[in-house]
Design a protein around this nucleic acid. Structure first.
Lengths: 150, 150
DNA sequence: CTACAACATTTGTACATACAAATATAAAAG
DNA sequence: CTTTTATATTTGTATGTACAAATGTTGTAG
């Protein structure tokens, strides 16, 4: 649906505003689709994001600040987010022995198993969305979005 | 900055995933810029969004469900969001006389004055972002984003 | 007219987020 | 060695969000 119709406004808008609103609306649309797909697994988008970051460490533990800087949506309180994952036994947290200010966070076997189940579901969500435009359009979309943040 | 660099991952990703993450990251980037610009005025992005919807009514009052369906980011609790705006005297709420289940929400003079001050600031944020790509790229970006939600 | 379903909003609860302040540890300066 | 400064995380508070249940009102069927 066109962005103007979606916002149900009759006032005409500058293209810059349309663009900005369109990106936000589309991001919300995608986020909702992902949340819906994650729901049966009982983890939120952010929790899933953190688990994928931890898996990406390939055995090496991550500390809080590493997680923060890699997160798709930065959040101000990674402590409490990790708390939830620890509660569910998807990751574990130990005080770093060499520097006791830091904590080492590591994905557990349970966390890896969960991701293994979630992976194909999220792949499908992402593919279903991306396949609505062609390969060339995806590339130019990625390039243009990168530009907008420069 | 390229999306891969931003996410600091060495693993190669399918283009569909890059696209999805890129849209979310870019939306967060824009949302932050807007929040920053709104900060001196003491309203949140969502509160600003509601005020613009109320102004768009051009005198006619809006009820809660109208606001909900027009919001850029749907939220589950418009009641409490409007509460905040009423507290600040930017809008008023009266029970609809013809149907007492409904409420009529109307922007106040104070709300209109606030928007008048905010408008140019937000225009600038939007323009600063959009001007990083050319007119033709903006149009094709808008078209492609519309497609993704279809 | 009464019972019941539908509608519009509000409230409760749990979790998420932003921001500031507090805590704890480590490193550097004197 | 003690004080100061910087670093890493945690906690507190206010606000935002999702979902379900509760409230109050209207419309409708019998």
């Amino acid at each position: 649906m066109k962005i103007e119709e979606l916002l149900k406004t009759k006032d005409k808008m500058p293209e810059s505003r349309k663009l900005v609103l369109n990106i936000i609306v589309t991001a919300n649309y995608i986020t909702e689709k992902i949340a819906e797909a994650l729901k049966p697994f009982g983890v939120s988008n952010q929790q899933f994001n953190v688990l994928r970051i931890l898996r990406g460490q390939k055995g090496k533990p991550a500390n809080l600040s590493t997680i923060q800087e890699r997160m798709v949506s930065k959040m101000s309180n990674t402590t409490r987010l990790v708390d939830k994952l620890v509660d569910k036994n998807y990751c574990e947290r130990i005080v770093c022995p060499s520097n006791r200010r830091k904590v080492e966070i590591r994905i557990t076997e349970g966390g890896l198993e969960l991701l293994h189940k979630i992976d194909p579901v999220i792949d499908e969500v992402e593919n279903d969305i991306a396949k609505k435009i062609n390969e060339k359009e995806i590339l130019s979309l990625n390039t243009n979005l990168n530009e907008l943040r420069s």
